[in-house]
Amino acid sequence: MNTNFKYAFISLTGILIFCFLANISLGSVSIPFKTVFESLLGITDNYIIQNYRLPKAFTAVLVGSGLGISGLLMQTLFRNPLAGPYVLGISSGASLGVALIILGAGIFGGVFATLLVSKWSVIIAASLGSFLVLSAVLIVSSKVRDTMAILIIGLMFGSITAAVVSVLSYFSSAEQLQQYIFWGFGSLGNLSWYELGIFFCVYCVGMILTIFSIKALNSLLLGENYAKSLGLNIKQSRLIIIIATSLLAGTITAFAGPIAFIGLAIPHMARQVFTTSNHKVLLPAVFLFGAIIMLICDSIAQLPTSDYTLPINAITSLIGAPVVIWLLVRKRKMLF
């Protein structure tokens, strides 16, 4: 690896550590860096840090890096710089699951409803929803050879689920709608250590599959026919890449809600800074960028020293969109 890359990686890691600490320190109650250090090293106990700030910061790292990497996978697989982790219907599937639980409760009513609307049921519904929509996309795509067709099929499934969600919304009470909309804002701060542990396990499986796909991803940069002529088993690699994406983006949506823009924007930032498409370099770069940007977005969303918290989903878009525009105007090209 060339030395410029090394320096870039070292400085990015430094920035990540700083953002991580700053994220813990900032919030409705500001905690001095000294206390943050002492608490992290186990010298003093700080209730807020250990039970709120630290799990939230870890969640931000997992969410940012996971979404960035699934975006990278989708952009390479679909040869499309606009692809993100949600093009396969992952987010719409999760929304459908959550909508059925929250909004459907009013329609089905009774004891059923009170049983269902708990935090875990929302998480399970979101996972099941994205899993089902993705399975449908996968089954259909096994009959289709063209990768572009899979992209369109994913979008179509997205439209179908969106339509079901709007029908459900129409029959729901204002209270339920509000609850659904709040889920749609996204949230990093709701996870206990136990939930974070489960999240982390699934995240690791997705990451391992991704790491084993590095070579396949690099061949796919030439297009599918060239990749095949280089000895790649296209169908198998495509399946592994899609499974990795759905594990990463699916669990993230389940635990943190649909978080916009990170998946699309982060891979482009990494490509512009490292000026390469080699996934061996891009993968760690996207990990670092994703984690850093997510930590920054979360710190802003907390509106330091105030009692208000902004929807994280709005912040990621407010920061992500201008960054992409700025990169494009500067380089005049969107490459992948």
């Binding site: 796919l220 940069l221 030439l222 498409s277």
Partner: peptide
């Protein structure tokens, strides 16, 4: 091949 390579960023 005659087809264009997918990524011109290489």
């Amino acid at each position: 091949l005659t087809e264009k390579i997918a990524s011109k960023n290489l």
